[in-house]
Design a protein around this nucleic acid. Structure first.
Lengths: 179, 179, 179, 179
DNA sequence: TTTT
DNA sequence: TTTT
């Protein structure tokens, strides 16, 4: 767990959609969220107000993934601190592709919900609505990674890049395998 | 220049190769560098020492780009602070691709050489050797972006992703156009 | 405005009280706020839940000070990014004392209100309530630093340390004088 | 080990003197270092180049303290990441005083030596010279905090503030007691 | 796709 | 002195 160099990302922004929770074969949770940050400025040439939004792919692991799944929702404001990680995957034509994510994990990972009083998910009895996360009908241990990937591919296609399989599974909070 | 949210990256690491300096049509400098950070750990299963290196694409603009070109070299240790930015480009087959970079620019961008006394380029009389950067034989104003891009594409191909053109040119230190 | 080394503080927390706004002889605004961050843990020995709150003295300058005065209130959640600065002052007995603050200022300073919809001050017609800030009855230019300091001394005494005079006035957003 | 809010300090700078290593009653190591960061600018009024150095008190705990003691020296360049902490102590006249330090500790603490090959302590056979740190003639367990404090007080007096005793001992890497 |  |  030593490291040479510093690789740190700090984001504060709002979720573009509800978190997607999955489970690794080991049973560790993974939450994928997208966070928006934006800059606005006055265009010198036209004098108009302009705005540009940057979307960040963030992957949380272990306990933080579970908290994200429970409390974060589309629109939630959040602070995350993690590391940059670029992973290689193959598209349908077998070509190499790369996706860069912010990995929030282990000792260095931080996730804090912002904005106070209950901006997130209902704490109470509505947990049935969470059925599409983590496949509650099946024990978490059975939820493996690859099948879920397949399902997501089509819709992700329209976005940016299919979610690659975590062939080398990222370190769960209790594991010693770094990313 | 207002912003909603925080988008901050901090890296400390070593350059994988000499900086590549180019000039935008406006004359503003752009330096592309790759920074390595690494983690090492003992594999629980095998007991072996393992190491994983992460490579970061970093783009510096304006004055910082010029300083990078003058003083940084392959192996230089550097601190950079910038923002995450994902840009879309088209590959040869016209397919959309995305590349994420750390943009170091303007007021929020920071670049500091580390390691003290002259780890980088010779400060003294060898500045002629910089001829291949920034095409000093021609006035900087003539160096536009696209042609240079073409030249770089082949070698970059082997790496990760061709360097996309900056169609929407990133803000030079003196410009009001954000990234 | 060059710098050797990195001096960066990032805080996310809540204000312990309303901001105190003052004006320097130059007319530049200064806002002093206190931000709480806290840690909670289970005491190994007793098994009890414990919590410790850290209070941070933060000084904002220029535009950010004005925004703080207008929108932040006791309890507001805020992100600030600034620099550590320790200043020397003399107590009543003439002894040297030191106070460390987070200075949020100029290009590197960041202040973002968190928590969304109107957690702060009313945007509308209640601005008269702000009368005790910045002495609106008098032109800002007349509000100088030292007198205000005198008034605050007694109450501050009970706290931590009297607010020292800014003998070497900190850089306003438009100044070139660093802190 | 939960926390509400973010309390983060990042420093890159050089040590003003050799680290001072002490041991807590528990046997955990504590290293005190001072780090300089500086800003330089051109004075608008006089046109002169000016420089201001900020000195930071940093306390490292546990393993990081040991590494600091072994490898850092006066002049060493270092990256540290920690938390702001203000502690109260009494001066000779019994008056309350406050000292703010950067605490580098536990999971969130980071310390990285910069500048590459052997800028710090001799890696080789000179480790006997470290005898004045950590009192190697006596078992670490016997080195308690308070006596060492007494010795340091006089010289520290000239500086900023006597090193307060850690009455509530800060969390060692293996402890669950936060700071 | 978020937020103001 | 804040917040949960």
């Amino acid at each position: 767990m030593a490291s040479r160099g510093i690789n740190k990302v700090i984001l504060v922004g709002n979720l573009g959609q509800d978190p997607e929770i999955r489970y690794m074969p080991s049973g560790g949770a993974v939450a994928n969220i997208t966070i928006a940050t934006s800059e606005s400025w006055r265009d010198k040439a036209t004098g108009e107000q302009r705005e540009k939004t940057e979307w960040h792919r963030v992957a949380l692991f272990g306990k933080l993934a579970e908290v994200a799944g429970e409390y974060l929702r589309k629109g939630s404001q959040v602070y995350v601190e993690g590391q940059l990680q670029t992973r290689k995957w193959q598209d349908q034509s077998g070509q190499d592709r790369f996706t860069t994510e912010v990995v929030v994990q282990g000792f260095n990972g931080v996730m804090q919900m912002l904005g106070g009083r209950g901006q997130g998910a209902p704490a109470g009895g509505q947990q049935q609505q969470q059925g599409n996360w983590g496949q509650p009908q099946q024990p978490a241990q059975q939820n493996n990674f690859a099948p879920q990937q397949q399902q997501q591919a089509p819709q992700q296609q329209a976005q940016q890049a299919p979610q690659p399989q975590y062939n080398e599974p990222p370190m769960d909070f209790d594991d010693d395998i770094p990313f």
